[in-house]
């Protein structure tokens, strides 16, 4: 079994902390992956708003390279990249004619054989079975698990978790020793790509997500998406200004929580890179 990783743009940029934690826990659990060579942009939110063919061709090229390199599985830590790759695989499987056309566009063979995993699926498959023996410092905190929009959607294609009340992240966190609180903002919108063009909207929406988590007494918000993280963490000064308050709750990646629980240093899992100070360790 050869596992590949598709980092996408954020894991090499604004979400280097996420990237570091994924690699750190992979190393700790003896897991290896090969970065897909010569990978390109997944198309993100822009491509499928403008050109359907382009929005399929970009991920198809990534998947075709993965196949060519004999990768049976691809882990995609970014929820947005994951969504684009899975949707492409679904669309091309459904329509062989479209698949042929896309193959011509990318000038490569594409068969759709690689299995695409999001970070929680990967954790469930490879980390959870060995987790118990590895935990040295149970993550004894109250956490609000925030899934965002793309991790479990579109439900008809992903067929993964309960779309309006997802549970997978809660389950992983409780296995680390955390208490996942009843948190109604699990899948509310963080503002997503408006982060750049309309920071005020992100401040309003992300602020509600943070406010409710703090109000319910959570020690941290746990995420599995770099976009959610940057909106809740990097945009915190804007949020605090918008709401005229001082939200202090840190936002951590699920992989960072795992890293801490198995005894990795905060440095190693990228916690030093956060904008909001993470006092838990």
């Amino acid at each position: 079994m050869k596992t590949g990783i598709y980092p996408g743009c954020s894991l090499t940029g604004s979400a280097r902390d996420y990237n570091e934690s994924v690699f750190a826990i992979a190393e700790a659990f003896g897991l290896e992956f090969i970065q897909i060579p010569d990978w390109n942009c997944c198309g993100a939110t822009a491509a499928h708003n403008l050109n359907k063919e382009l929005s399929l061709a970009l991920p198809a090229r990534i998947l075709a390279i993965a196949e060519k390199n004999g990768l049976d599985e691809i882990i995609v830590p970014c929820a947005a990249c994951y969504s684009r790759l899975v949707v492409t695989q679904h669309e091309l499987k459904k329509d062989p004619e479209l698949k042929n056309r896309i193959c011509e566009v990318i000038e490569m063979d594409y068969r759709g054989t690689s299995v695409i995993l999001n970070v929680i699926e990967w954790i469930d498959k490879y980390i959870v079975p060995k987790l118990e023996e590895k935990i040295v410092k149970p993550f004894n905190y109250k956490v609000a698990c925030y899934y965002g929009c793309l991790l479990v959607r579109p439900n008809k294609i992903l067929n993964y978790d309960r779309v309006e009340d997802p549970q997978t992240l809660d389950v992983v966190m409780s296995k680390l020793g955390a208490t996942a609180i009843d948190y109604p903002y699990k899948t509310e919108c963080c503002g997503a790509g408006l982060s750049i063009s309309r920071t005020d909207i992100v401040s309003k929406l992300s602020g509600k997500i943070i406010e409710d988590a703090e109000h319910r007494g959570a020690d941290a918000i746990v995420v599995a998406c770099p976009m959610c993280h940057s909106n809740l963490d990097m945009r915190r000064p804007d949020i605090n200004k918008y709401w005229d308050t001082e939200f202090k709750i840190p936002v951590i990646f699920v992989t960072q929580a795992i890293g801490l629980a198995i005894g990795l240093s905060p440095q190693k899992v990228g916690l030093r890179r956060h904008f909001v100070e993470v006092k838990i360790s």
Binding site: E164, D182, P184, D212, H215, R216
Partner: peptide
């Protein structure tokens, strides 16, 4: 869209 509890009230 959703109903949830907060401070003993249903939102």
């Amino acid at each position: 869209s959703t109903v949830f509890e907060r401070d003993g009230k249903l939102i």
